[in-house]
């Protein structure tokens, strides 16, 4: 597993306590998991997606990632409706291990963009990890 100083935590996304990230892309927000999350989970073998059109509250479970011997639930960083899922991950879940930031999981139409501002930046997230 990576040491904390080996983690890749880009500054252009925001983070949650549950190790998801969110990034505004035009009118939608892309959601994925952090380098820390993919590293902890190890080889990801399956992504359980929500359906396009489903709506979730901030912090609500919207899917899960599976490794061989663990399941990690995914919680939505901000409320909204799922407008797209990353179909590439269905056949190649390992893409998340390869680059967890390029390989987003879902795209949402946010219900309240101000929730985005409440999320942690990279520095705050690192502080949390250092505990």
């Amino acid at each position: 597993m990576k040491e904390l100083n080996e983690l890749n935590l880009p500054a252009n996304v925001r983070y949650t306590e549950d190790h998801e990230w969110a990034k505004i892309v035009g009118s939608t927000v892309r959601i994925g998991v952090s380098d820390y999350a993919q590293d902890q989970l190890g080889d990801i073998v399956f992504v359980e997606f929500p359906e396009v059109g489903d709506s979730f509250e901030q912090g609500e479970e919207f899917g899960s990632l599976e490794s061989v011997k663990a399941v990690s639930e995914l919680y939505l960083p901000l409320s909204g409706e799922i407008v797209a899922i990353n179909e590439d991950l269905a056949d190649s879940p390992e893409l998340i291990n390869e680059d967890p930031y390029v390989n987003w999981i879902v795209e949402i139409k946010p219900a309240d963009k101000s929730e985005f501002e409440e999320l942690m930046n990279a520095e705050q997230y690192m502080d949390m990890l250092e505990g």
């Binding site: 080889d43 073998v45 399956f46 599976e66 490794s67 061989v68 879940p93 390992e94």
Partner: peptide
């Protein structure tokens, strides 16, 4: 030898 459980699950 050790078996590839990741491949089996993916």
């Amino acid at each position: 030898k050790r078996l590839d459980e990741t491949l089996a699950a993916r």
